[in-house]
């Protein structure tokens, strides 16, 4: 379980996250929605410590980290091993083959034996539908393939949480579908996902929970069904704008 209490992050004068408190239960997919610039990426990156909030408490299972006091490198690394980030622009390592991209973390960070790591990497590639791409370089992949490799790379670390920041925003609809299918399967297998997306149909399909942020504050935090049937005008407007319905 991952729990945030009063998380705050400012860039200069700009308060991007303003007292965020929420719980991300395990084995559930949370979809984070909100208008552009609302702080979704910052929230996700804070969970993986790519951003350091200046205040707030971060509970990971029964460990407590206090951002106000600052985190040691060791604490940061221990959190990062349990959370994996999937980026909008994939960020595969271009100098490594697909297989080596996937085993890099397990062998270098988790110190797994190379052959075990390779065997699992191959299985993960099959799982994301790229069993034949082990020896390709990232530059030889389409965007949809690259993002699926990035998902396999995240899975290879066996993290508790996978954090995906607009994983399909750089893809055209057909390539997006390849990725979304993989994510749906992961959600069905109870892999914990936290996904920032603008794809409402996908959110409606895979989310268990929805977090709606605006101006760095949570406007909605609850089950998917409740979100899509809410009477809150701001959210009704947002949904209809995103789905182009009732306009």
């Amino acid at each position: 379980m991952l729990k945030l209490e009063n998380l705050s992050k400012t860039f200069g004068e700009h308060r991007v996250l303003d007292g965020i408190s929420t719980v991300f239960p395990e084995h559930e997919t949370t979809v984070v929605l909100g208008p552009s610039g609302s702080g979704k990426s910052t929230l996700l990156r804070s969970l993986n410590l790519l951003e350091r909030p200046e205040a707030g408490r971060y509970h990971f299972d029964d460990e407590l980290f206090d951002f106000g006091k600052g985190l040691s490198n060791k604490e940061i690394l221990s959190i990062r091993k349990r959370t994996e980030m999937v980026f909008q622009e994939y960020n595969l390592f271009p100098h490594l083959t697909v297989l080596k991209n996937i085993i890099e973390g397990p062998t270098q960070v988790l110190h797994e034996a190379k052959d075990t790591a390779q065997k699992r990497a191959q299985e993960l590639l099959v799982k994301v539908g790229l069993g034949d791409k082990a020896d390709a370089y990232p530059s030889q992949l389409s965007g949809g393939q690259a993002q699926r490799v990035a998902i396999a790379r995240a899975l290879a670390m066996q993290p508790k949480y996978i954090l995906l920041d607009e994983p399909t925003s750089a893809l055209d609809p057909e390539l997006e579908l390849e990725v979304l299918k993989v994510l749906r399967q992961l959600a069905q297998e109870k892999q914990t996902l936290i996904i920032v997306t603008h794809n409402m149909a996908f959110a409606r399909e895979v989310a268990a929970r929805v977090l709606f942020i605006e101006n760095g504050q949570i406007l909605f935090d609850g089950p998917k069904a409740e979100f899509f049937n809410t009477k809150k005008q701001r959210i009704v407007d947002f949904i209809s704008a995103m789905t182009f319905e009732n306009i």
Binding site: L50, L77, R80, K81, N91, F93, E104, Q108, V109
Partner: peptide
């Protein structure tokens, strides 16, 4: 910067 972030995300230290 994304290369650093991807490396950090899989738990690497700055040196690694």
């Amino acid at each position: 910067k994304g290369q650093w972030e991807a490396a950090y995300s899989i738990g690497m230290t700055r040196t690694l």
